[in-house]
Nucleic acid binder design. Sequence first.
DNA 1: TTGTAGGCGTTATCAA
DNA 2: TTGATAACGCCTACAA
Lengths: 347, 347
Amino acid sequence: MAATIREVAAHAGVSVATVSRALNGSGPVGPETRARVEAAVASLKYRPNSAARSLITRRTRMLGVLLPDLFGEFFSELIRGIDQAAQAAGYHLLLSSSHDDASDLGAALEGMHGRVDGLVAMAPKVGTQVLDDLLPENVPVVLLNTAYAGDAYGTLRIDSYGGARSAVRHLAEHGHRRIGIINGPVENFDAQERLRGYRAALSEALVPPATELEAAGDFTGLAGFTGANALLALKDRPTAIFAANDAMAVGALSALQAAGVRVPADMALAGFDDVSSTQYTNPPLTSVHVPIHEMGARAVARLVAVVGGTSELPQREKLPATLVLRRSCGCGVPVEARMAASHGSRR
Amino acid sequence: MAATIREVAAHAGVSVATVSRALNGSGPVGPETRARVEAAVASLKYRPNSAARSLITRRTRMLGVLLPDLFGEFFSELIRGIDQAAQAAGYHLLLSSSHDDASDLGAALEGMHGRVDGLVAMAPKVGTQVLDDLLPENVPVVLLNTAYAGDAYGTLRIDSYGGARSAVRHLAEHGHRRIGIINGPVENFDAQERLRGYRAALSEALVPPATELEAAGDFTGLAGFTGANALLALKDRPTAIFAANDAMAVGALSALQAAGVRVPADMALAGFDDVSSTQYTNPPLTSVHVPIHEMGARAVARLVAVVGGTSELPQREKLPATLVLRRSCGCGVPVEARMAASHGSRR
DNA sequence: TTGTAGGCGTTATCAA
DNA sequence: TTGATAACGCCTACAA
């Protein structure tokens, strides 16, 4: 049996109140008394019972993390950012994934009810209405890359529009006039923003839009593969492709190479996310860098601030997405420099 | 304020004991009474306070997940398997990562104390002694791919030895006599097993071992890159390379292509893990498939069985690792078939 | 600076 | 079949 605060008190010859104060610094404790308490704690290996503590404190020191999915490097990086920040702030993470639609999300939220002090959630396919209905009001929430237009919850977003725009603009500056895109899922907020950025860049470059150049996709490698093939099959083939994420860009690259289309000589290619594996493709992939790790950390920092009373109202924040030039778009970067600067994926 | 069981009882005109029994099925409740209770629960939107419940129950319905790291696809897949199984069994996941050495591990374990009903942990660099000291005795534990030789905790392992052996044997069957390896971290249990498998296969093929062919690595893409270069620099270059994981294989592939070495014509290549991105490399990577998702799910299933009293003593289990042939080793597989069968990485 | 005692919301043990 | 009531382990006024 684990020792209780009462046993510690007895062992130290003081009251439970004193032990509590000594442990939490919640009141004055004489130096000599504190020493006795600490000795008792150590000798009994006492650790406060967290259930009992949160029953009265109404705090759990846990943060809920709700993600639509866990596929791919994007999410490992995101969770890593969240985890590190949470750990540093003394919080634990309650993780839950696979929540694409409203009912899944509702169930997951229901399960977390009362177990967390704050929530960071990513729900790229769910709208404002549903979120307002489902999300709890009693705990602070930070929504990641989510199309939330209300003001009850905080948001934190990547500048998908700006990032896509700069990538496509860059392709146009390489001289390309027919630039294809492989889209993300239509209901996905980021996908919509990236498509918008693509179109904006084209219009700025005075390139007339062509719907045939907008291939459907769903952020999977397979979609990149088939999307690229669809674009290749066009009578008037594009000379450059912008994939709405890196997984699709890698799939597209594979399709292009299988078809004997050289990259970037015959076809320029750019992706989005700048996931670490893009540095090891051949040629290395030009991509839009997204501060994924930082996004996770920032979300936690905001939550912790609100829980701690340091911050108040829900905020809206946008993180920059910056183009990283590698060889797939036609720019040249020496290989060694690239590898040395990278960190890579480890186990 | 959230409604309490007392309010529900008042609302339904019964005692709290009856409400508790009705909700938990822990005792007889009249059908008419039950209906009244359910109506009260619904109208008050009552949800039991989990802290209070676990205070007396001594159960949290949470499972701790301890991982050394979160980089790469391996871990997203693992967590996905764990998460799905936990969700299905009605458990929540308390996630904690970045625990390479004993002190990190101890701290994380300390933080989870009393908060979880079971623990799935992966600690590939920590030995039996340390684990016996650090791990809790009051909750069931399943150790993943860990070099634990004691009998206090359960283990679940991938057959790294067998997998590596079959991969290298296959390379030998292709006629290769000089086969290099790019190793994982020396302290890593899986890395050790894979090296052992590599050596066993060589000896079976009557190929004399050569330490110069064993390049150091650390499971990162960069290590694969530099490791391949080291092997290329040998006076007597190998004609095939076995990388101890896929991330390194991909890095190695990049180095080979940068050096103008054709794969598989000039150099055969095989990896380990069969992570989804290996299907999109060019050429597609021959790799040893590991049932990552299943490993996670199985670990949870065992934990749940023990917590539920269905199972008893800690078991030791080994999961098979099977070679998947693609083009990088010299075998041919049509591209379309490959892509259609895959699922890929999604967001 | 320290101690006493009440209560946080449940479940569990008795009687009734 | 139902209801009082005592834990569970901790924090926190309030008193001393």
